[in-house]
Write a protein that binds this DNA or RNA. Structure first.
Lengths: 177, 177
DNA sequence: TATTGTTATACTCTATAACTATA
DNA sequence: TATAGTTATAGAGTATAACAATA
């Protein structure tokens, strides 16, 4: 699949969360909540998983934007940092994306001085990617933001349930079909 | 926010799940797994939430495609079915999307005979949306697919933990910031 | 003036296919 | 022939702004 594109579905609870529900004017012009019936959606795991992920992603996206980066750049920078010298093809595979999707991303990171590319002598088709000092600083900032974000999640989940919650998430990712 | 657009991040575990990890050839040409280090990503709730959601969405997307629809259409059809006569603006708000985003979606559903639009006499700017018989049949198919999908998730989560797992997801969607 | 829905336009992330330069 | 990376192009879902019709 991999076409991880926004789906209308996910926004329903977000809308509710943000108090954006459709409204109607009453007889005296006051706002009257038009209650939307979400039907079976509201009770399904798949739907609620989507809602939680969307809300979490929005929150992290907000933190990232304050640093001037996107969540996607965070993933790419982390992978390069943890796998110094990784090639673009390896990176795209680790990412589950086609290599052509990575070209503009790497180009952007190099242009902004976060990543450096070196030709490999033994195979002159390949590049090795590494973070520059600037890239490392940016990644450190984003990592701190991510940790604050994680502490928020920990607070909501509660320490007692966290391990089991994480286990279930990992099992779902590994076993669903 | 609302720009729920795919992020490279999410695919990492998906790639692992699908055995798509980068590989290298050994001395005798055999495939040698190049192990990618995911660093701190692997232990974070936000990341694992994303992985689980992505895997789950892909699975449901696959089921939907077999019916000839997209997950997004399922959400839209469900909302119309549960709120007969809903207007396009109300629908877009329930969806958390701009009304202009809904125009091509409704147009497509009307063109394919799943939804009918009626002008409202008391306010001739507004349309009322309803499912046609065909729309109801399609929604019934998709709902059955969703229930099979839910049973899969239930099996993975386990009945004992399901309620608590759902509660945590709902709390995250409601409280994260 | 405000609202409903449409149009025009643009953005992000993604994919496929064809290309180049190497191997 | 096969692989690494680029280019050209397209598609899905989204947004903003301006508009016509109606309120």
């Amino acid at each position: 699949m991999g076409k991880a594109i926004g789906i209308p579905l996910e926004a329903i609870v977000v809308a509710v969360r943000k108090g954006k529900g459709a409204t109607r004017r009453g007889k005296n012009g006051e706002a009257v909540a038009k209650s939307i019936d979400f039907g079976p959606l509201a009770t399904w795991v798949g739907f609620n998983l989507r809602m939680a992920q969307e809300a979490t992603f929005d929150a992290f996206s907000h933190r990232s934007k304050a640093i001037g980066e996107s969540p996607g750049r965070f993933g790419t920078l982390t992978l390069i940092a943890c796998n110094p010298g990784i090639s673009q093809t390896e990176l795209s595979q680790a990412n589950g994306r086609d290599k052509s999707s990575l070209t503009p991303v790497v180009e952007d990171l190099v242009r902004r001085g976060l990543v450096e590319r070196k030709r490999v002598d033994s195979d002159r088709r390949t590049y090795r990617l590494n973070l520059t000092a600037t890239g490392k600083r940016t990644l450190a900032l984003m990592t701190r933001a991510a940790r604050r974000h994680e502490r928020n999640l920990d607070r909501i989940i509660g320490l007692r349930d966290k391990k089991r919650f994480l286990d279930i998430l990992k099992r779902i990712a590994a076993e669903i079909e």
